[in-house]
Amino acid sequence: MDLVTPNLGLMFWTGLIFVLLLFILTKFIWKPILSAVNTREKSISDSLELAEKTMAEMKSLQSQNENLLKEARAERDAIVRDAKEIATKMVEESKNTAKTEAEKIITSAREAINNEKVSAMAELKIQIAEFSIQIAEKVVRGELSSDEKQKALSEKLASDFQLN
């Protein structure tokens, strides 16, 4: 029975010590420690938040960068495409000009050739006419060199007329 009979002296000391302990610890220990722990927890959560924010920012920056890159790439592609187009156009144009030039040259050459030909023909005709006249002169001269010949010719011509 002694075991479960409370003892007044010990109860008094326990109560005194515990209440003193509660008072001192609450005033000098729990409050500073809890506030320190709270501050730290707050700073940790703040830092975490900040980190998250920074990460989000970085992500947006990254996406911005990506957009910029995409734009730049698109621009580059456009420039390259334009350049290619221009180049092909230029090539085409130069090809065309070359072709027309060549054609022009060919036509002019052909014309020149024709002209030459025509002039050559004309000259030839003139030459031939000259030659024929000379020949005719020679022939006429020959035909009319003697009286007989003149007579024969006139006879012939007369016979020709007679035929008519």
């Binding site: 075991l3 003892n7 010990l10 109860m11 326990t14 109560g15």
Partner: peptide
């Protein structure tokens, strides 16, 4: 493990 101590704590 002394009832005098635990009785004070429980009373509080």
């Amino acid at each position: 493990g002394n009832i005098s101590v635990t009785i004070v704590l429980a009373t509080l």
